[in-house]
């Protein structure tokens, strides 16, 4: 029973520490992953915004000259130029303030119209399953909405990066948890190992009960105790030892 209890103590100590360690590792991993995701999004948004602003400047120039967007003949060429300059771009659109598409240049299949959810906003960034989009509202010469620009890029690169980092975190986290688990097992073993002063008390007590009482062993001293409870126990044992030595010895059979 004693042995079983001893191992259960080591298991309790090690298990408690391991649960805390795993929770902390999961939390740290999730926080790191979220920060990576946020940084990636910020970079993508900044890159798309640069192009959106350039298109926006061209549109605003025409509006300032009194040309409605439908009449700005140079716009399709400008949009195609931007689309060609960045192979990741899927779609560059100039839309009206009511959301209808005025000019759109696309690579591959026609993209959905993400700007419809953001009409009236000065700038926006949206991530959908099929793409990441940035939009800008363009103010006309009268200070009211003149048009809107929307740029969409494929989410493939983003999903690849997220998957790569997820795998690395998962394996790295598992390796860290394994290493921490091993160290915690060592810690639990250290915690559960025999204490010298207490061991001397136990040995002496067993000898007394077996009728082999002799002089007080030199190793039996409260000074050797490493913790308060152990010191207290050794001192109490030393005080009770004469009474134990004089008492019944049947207990030794245990």
């Amino acid at each position: 029973m004693t042995t079983k209890k001893r191992y259960s103590l080591i298991a309790t100590v090690g298990g408690s520490m391991m649960i805390v360690a795993i929770l902390a590792l999961i939390l740290a991993g999730v926080l790191n992953f979220l920060r990576f995701d946020e940084t990636y999004m910020r970079l993508v948004a900044q890159r798309l915004e640069v192009t959106a602003q350039a298109v926006g400047r061209a549109v605003a120039l025409g509006l300032d000259l009194g040309l409605p967007i439908e009449s700005q003949d140079n716009l399709p060429g400008t949009l195609r130029q931007h689309l060609a300059a960045d192979p990741d771009l899927r779609n560059v659109t100039v839309h009206g303030c009511d959301g209808r598409t005025v000019i759109a240049v696309e690579r591959g299949a026609a993209a959905p119209e993400p700007w419809r959810k953001h009409l009236g906003e000065a700038s926006w960034f949206a991530v959908e399953a099929d793409g990441m989009s940035v939009g800008l509202g363009i103010v006309g010469p009268l200070g009211i909405c003149g048009a809107g620009v929307s740029i969409t890029r494929s989410a493939e690169a983003y999903l690849d990066a997220v998957n790569a980092v997820r795998h690395r975190f998962l394996w790295g986290g598992m390796a860290a948890a394994g290493a921490a688990g091993f160290a915690i097992a060592v810690a639990a073993w250290v915690f559960g190992r025999r204490r010298r002063a207490l061991g001397a008390v136990d040995d002496d007590f067993a000898r007394l009960l077996d009728g082999k009482a002799g002089e007080l062993p030199a190793s039996l001293s409260a000074e050797d105790a490493t913790e308060g409870w152990e010191r207290e126990l050794v001192a109490a044992y030393l005080a009770a030892r004469p009474a134990i030595a004089a008492g019944p010895r049947e207990g030794g059979a245990s």
Binding site: V13, M17, V20, A21, A24, L25, A28, G29, N32, F33, R35, F36, R168, F169, G172, G173, A175, A176, A177, A179, A180, F182, A183, I184, V186, A187, A188, V190, F191, G192, R193, R195, T226, E227
Partner: peptide, 26 residues
């Protein structure tokens, strides 16, 4: 010298190093 303190130090250090490793990896 207390096994309790030693155990806690080992466990604490291992936890710290594991979290540092995860952050370094990140």
């Amino acid at each position: 010298a207390s096994p309790t303190v030693q155990g806690l130090v080992i466990a604490g250090l291992s936890l710290f190093l594991a979290l540092a490793a995860v952050s370094w990896l990140a």
